[in-house]
Design a protein around this nucleic acid. Structure first.
Lengths: 354, 354
DNA sequence: TTGTAAGCGTTATCAC
DNA sequence: GTGATAACGCTTACAA
């Protein structure tokens, strides 16, 4: 793999000129280079892969030919031959969730530095799409991929092909085969709920996503904190983690005669939906109802009052996942690692002391 | 191409079962299928590509073998052979810009429906990365790609390889070779500015991105509206279209003794930055300073007061771009189309009548 | 309607 | 240190 990496870096340097108009008409192959340099294709390959010894003189001749022809190796052919590619996959459930957007960005950066490109796929929390994209990962010969499976799919995952390096992020999967990068969700839910309780809220409703293992864990923390204070859950819902469902559910909740004094949401899409509902009911945050959630977003600090939340270290999660992936690519037998990161409570106006 | 599409759809149906553990150990090839079915590889290929005639009986035998072996064709090998793939590219400048996130989502949906997957790349407004990803598009044999180039890169684009179908989105490029899907940015800037003027604002500052052609066009509309009302630009800045730069610039602007009474921003990242700055200065929107921008985001309607803006039909832009791309893939000689879509002014509290 | 075989552009094995 | 050459798994003339 190392040679591949070096290789790519070298190329992005040497052939940074764009493809001229006529390029694909006479797209030069390794044969053309060999002919011009007066060597065999094997030698050209050796020079480019710079893993075998060649005399400096032939190396130079080859490089000249390469430059002269503006040659760039055919990645597809190479991939067919070596059954690998300088590509990694990123399979997430919802690219519109700012959490995953940030992850995507971090992964892309980390991969780019190593000369890898990223095949990014959106499963929409749909197991059928997940399946098809996992197959695609295989078919595209990715070196490995980063994945946040739905609950249903995660359960199946351990039964299947383990030959391709995988790093699971965000969600627990019951397999000892894959590396994982997770948040300590129970602690996060616990901290966030404690914060509400300490600030005087008692009738705390919970809106939880129903697609991942993340939400149930955050719920566990929520329950634990409530229990420790002899409080009962005011109400709770397990719903699709989308803005619309957050809105609908919160609206119904707030229209009841007995309202909660705080809403706990398990992700930022639900937070946004709940906030819309609160606005729709012309209620005041936090006087009528407090609102807390997860993930720092563009808007969390901009709304008035700003939202109290548990911030996840998205950049770190993305980078860590990518690094674990590259480690496993380099050494597939290495025993799996699970990295658990802590969230940070950011207390703001939406849960101010009452 | 049609055959490829059908092909893929067929496969995603027939082989929806996941790869079993042992799969890659004995990853069956077309040869294995041929052997089991008692036919030649050519026949297997014909059955799978269902473009040539085969007797129903052999077709059945082949399909049985395929199912029995859990065979799935090797996309890389096929791609090497036919010099094409069921993949399209999406090269955008900043995946964290909600506009592009939405586009990405729409493109992914549209592509999925046709059995294509999407290679998504983030250039970070960096011409070097753009170049490398354009090369990658070539190297990955994508069927075509959707691209929002930086100004610098867009200028070069027409000089280069035209063999691969491209659809430009969001930004004008001076080439007659590519299809484009654009917003009527001059009109949008004009409408948004007129709206401010009608509501009584006179000292209107402008924060414009410096990476794309979009911002200068919106600026033209802004200038036109001002001129028609005998107003002078209060101040204007061309800056990198990022939250941080929006914040810094707006902060400096607001700390001057003579403050604008309205800030016009050319994209939502700048809007967010400007809003942060306004909050930082403890100023009231819109009483102290109005704020308007572009693109409907999760937060635009949630902040208080909500932001007035020009909404772009992102879903439509993404779908249209993908459709144009598929049309061009099917018929590469077809004369290029430019689709210009209108934005919608959404007037809200941040620019209320004074 | 079906089979044979060439070839897509690489890399890796084996000679020399 | 270098060159032939056989794969990698597929599609597609061309034959039969």
């Amino acid at each position: 793999m190392i040679s591949l990496i070096l290789f790519n870096v070298e190329f992005s340097k040497s052939f940074s000129s764009l493809l001229p108009k006529w390029y694909n008409l006479l797209m030069p192959s390794i044969k053309d280079v060999a002919k011009i340099a007066g060597v065999s294709t094997a030698t050209v390959s050796r020079v480019l892969g710079n893993n075998a010894k060649v005399t400096e003189e032939t190396r130079q001749r080859v490089m000249d030919a390469v430059e002269h022809l503006n040659y760039r190796p055919n990645l597809i052919a190479r991939s067919l031959r070596v059954q690998k590619s300088a590509k990694i996959g990123l399979v997430v459930s919802d690219i519109r969730n700012p959490f995953f957007t940030e992850i995507g960005r971090a992964v892309e950066d980390a991969a780019y530095e190593k000369g890898y490109s990223v095949l990014m796929c959106n499963t929409d929390e749909n197991p059928e799409k997940e399946e098809m994209y996992i197959n695609l990962m295989h078919d595209e010969n990715v070196a490995g991929f980063i994945f946040s499976p739905t609950q249903q799919f995660g359960a199946k995952l351990s039964t299947f092909d383990t030959s391709i390096p995988i790093v699971i992020i965000d969600r627990v999967v019951n397999t000892k085969q894959a590396d994982m990068v997770l948040l300590d969700n129970v602690a996060a839910g616990y901290d966030l709920t404690n914060h509400l309780i300490e600030n005087g809220y008692r009738k705390i409703a919970g809106l939880f996503g129903n697609a991942s293992t993340t939400a149930p864990e955050r719920r566990r923390g929520w329950l634990k904190a409530l229990r420790e204070h002899q409080l009962k859950p005011f109400a709770e819902y397990a719903i699709p983690p989308k803005i619309k469902q957050g809105y609908d559910t919160a609206l119904a909740l707030l229209n009841q005669s007995d309202r909660p004094d705080a809403i706990f949401t398990s992700n930022s899409l639900l937070t946004a939906g709940a906030l819309q509902a609160i606005r729709g009911c012309k209620l005041k945050v936090p006087d009528d109802v407090a609102l807390v959630g997860f993930d720092e977003t563009t808007w969390g600090a901009l709304v008035d009052p700003p939202i109290s939340l548990i911030a996840q270290p998205t950049e770190e999660i993305g980078r860590t996942a990518t690094e674990l992936l590259f480690q496993r690519i380099k050494d597939p037998t290495r025993s799996p690692k699970t990295v658990i990161l802590k969230g940070t409570l950011i207390a703001r106006g939406s849960s101010a002391k009452r």
